[in-house]
């Protein structure tokens, strides 16, 4: 790590475009990724895999620069020392065992033999593969192969991890385990760029996302921040309180509120439009303004609020909105088909 430029961000893309002949893979992307986990989301053909290949030095930008700690990852082999990559493609040197493969990858990273063996064991242990790593790769299940891929990405202890669909093919307990590993790695100040098509997985490990569609980065930042930027798209907030009618009347006067509706009463005997306990569903124009004003309105009305929740602030909701805005009109939260290659 001594060769890193101290002030440089782990991953930095400056005006990067990538063409494959007449086809554009990535279009004018400027992005910085900081330590921690960042989810990379987008539908098929969005440019996710191309972006990852640019960051790992497999592709040369047609325009712009892809830098890791301030160094061009395409032209500087030493920059790749800081990068671990787990590709989506399910390919290995099939005749080897998992242990042999991960050790070989450590040695290809310039680690001496004994140290490479030790590190390979460590990486395999972290991914839960140590007890199964002496099996030939061709005989391994999809989940085992995914873990081996992650192990080889970790084996040289890189500061930047680029993981393309790392959880695909892994069973639910395994996913939880690996998500825990990702959180641990993030806790070690590693920079993890993670692409996955299972949106709730992203939400389970990070709130920081990069949304791509048609080769462009549509949004990058925290889910909540991105949601707030969408001022013209109302956020739906449900407030469970004791005096829902009074609170609804007060909220409707706020500039940031586009509409208010009374939700279900808290108890079955309560009339639908009554002033007893229950939900108020508010359509909000600017979430930031609304949440700043909400406590004072609640106090003014003497209401007691049990719960406030944003109904559509999930990554999926944000993504659905953004992608439909980018021309993927058919997306309604159900049209997601895997995003296998970008």
């Amino acid at each position: 790590m001594s060769s890193m430029t101290p002030a440089a961000p782990p991953i930095s893309l400056r005006g990067v475009s990538k063409w494959y002949g007449p086809v554009i893979g990535v279009n004018g992307v400027t992005l910085e990724v900081e330590p921690g986990i960042t989810g990379l989301l987008g539908p098929n053909g969005a440019g996710k895999t191309t972006l990852m290949k640019l960051i790992t030095g497999q592709l040369r930008p047609s325009v712009g620069e892809a830098l890791v700690f301030g160094r061009s990852v395409w032209s500087r082999p030493d920059a790749r020392r800081h990068v671990g990559f787990s590709p989506e493609v399910d390919a290995f040197h099939e005749e080897m065992t998992g242990r042999e493969f991960v050790t070989a990858m450590a040695r290809l990273s310039g680690i001496p033999r004994r140290e490479a063996r030790r590190r390979a064991e460590g990486a395999l242990e972290r991914t839960g593969m140590l007890d199964r790593c002496d099996k030939r790769l061709r005989a391994c299940s999809k989940g085992m192969r995914q873990r081996i891929k992650i192990s080889q990405a970790l084996v040289h202890d890189p500061a930047v991890l680029v993981l393309d669909e790392p959880l695909s093919g892994i069973d639910p307990p395994g996913r939880i385990e690996l998500m825990g590993l990702l959180r641990d790695l993030a806790g070690e100040r590693k920079t993890i760029l993670l692409s996955t098509h299972i949106l709730h997985e992203v939400e389970a490990v990070t709130e920081r996302i990069v949304l791509m569609a048609r080769g462009r980065v549509l949004a990058a930042g925290y889910v909540g921040q991105i949601r707030e930027l969408l001022a013209e798209h109302p956020l739906t907030v449900r407030i469970a309180c004791d005096r829902r009618r009074v609170l609804a009347a007060a909220l409707v006067g706020l500039e940031s509120v586009a509409g208010v509706a009374l939700g279900a009463p808290a108890s079955a005997g309560e009339p639908e439009g009554g002033d007893g306990p229950g939900d108020v569903v508010v359509k909000v124009r600017r979430a930031g303004d609304f949440f700043r004003r909400l406590p004072s309105v609640v106090l003014e009305q003497g209401a007691e609020v049990e719960r406030v929740e944003a109904l559509d602030a999930s990554v999926e909701a944000v993504f659905g909105y953004l992608v439909s805005g980018a021309g993927y009109g058919g997306y309604g939260g159900h049209g997601w088909d895997g995003g296998s290659s970008g």
Partner: peptide, 17 residues
């Protein structure tokens, strides 16, 4: 052919090497 070249070109080695 076996699509494993990715493991070489992402390592810290010059491509000419």
């Amino acid at each position: 052919d076996e699509r494993s070249l990715v493991y070489l070109v992402t390592r810290p080695m010059a491509r000419s090497g």
